[in-house]
């Protein structure tokens, strides 16, 4: 019985039918990665919610309670229990949570956020299919990104736990430094193929055997 319930929650048929924006690149990513130096993988189907609300309003305070807080300045990320809130603008935020937070898999993040907004001014939109996540990690990850991103990515100015909306390889994307050597790159789904291949191309020199 328990088994059946679990199976219904995670295998309602939709999950198997879904294909992530860079699913076709999985083999390319694996072949291009070199452990510890430069690795890339897609983390598909994250639950994402776009929030537009004034931070200092009542609705903002209610949403902050559900989401774990709303970041105040550019770059700031608030994290609580695996749910991260990224600053996109003075009144615009992106909530990122694991896949199973989506109501199609039994989660309740979006209904909870919508309820918290209530009739306050703002909006809560399910953006789970809007972007995909590439995780680029390794000691050379920063060098790969620096080939196409004009931000100062040196650790003294771009610290772990910061996310900035910018351009990478001329593609608008969110760059989130989630660890010292780990970057999450969030392009829109339609740019996933291009940016995925672009990053693989940038990794090639680091993930190849050194020429003596």
């Amino acid at each position: 019985m328990v088994e059946t319930a679990a199976a219904t929650a995670s295998n309602n048929g939709v999950r198997e039918a879904r294909r992530s924006p860079a699913a076709h690149l999985a083999g390319t990513f694996e072949a291009a990665s070199l452990a510890g130096v430069a690795e890339i993988k897609e983390i598909p189907f994250q639950t994402m919610a776009g929030i537009r609300v004034q931070r200092d309003s009542d609705a903002g305070a209610r949403i902050a309670q559900v989401a774990g807080g709303l970041p105040a300045t550019c770059g700031e990320v608030v994290e609580r229990d695996g749910v991260s809130v990224l600053w996109l603008g003075p009144a615009e935020f992106l909530v990122i949570a694991p896949e199973n937070a989506h109501e199609s898999l039994g989660g309740d993040l979006l209904p909870a956020l919508t309820e918290a907004l209530g009739d306050g001014q703002g909006q809560v939109v399910d953006l789970s299919a809007n972007r995909t996540v590439f995780e680029l990690s390794g000691t050379r990850a920063r060098d790969v990104l620096e080939k196409g991103c004009s931000l100062d990515l040196h650790p003294r100015s771009f610290k772990a736990g910061t996310a900035l909306s910018t351009e990478i390889g001329h593609i608008p994307a969110i760059l989130w430094k989630s660890g010292e050597d780990t970057f999450q790159v969030l392009p829109r789904a339609s740019f996933a193929d291009f940016l995925g291949r672009w990053l693989v191309d940038g990794m090639r020199e680091f993930a190849s055997p050194e020429v003596p």
């Binding site: 550019c74 996109l88 900035l164 909306s165 910018t166």
Partner: peptide
């Protein structure tokens, strides 16, 4: 002149 930060904060 007016400018918008279209790939950043969109303001």
């Amino acid at each position: 002149e007016r400018w918008v930060h279209s790939t950043g904060c969109r303001q």
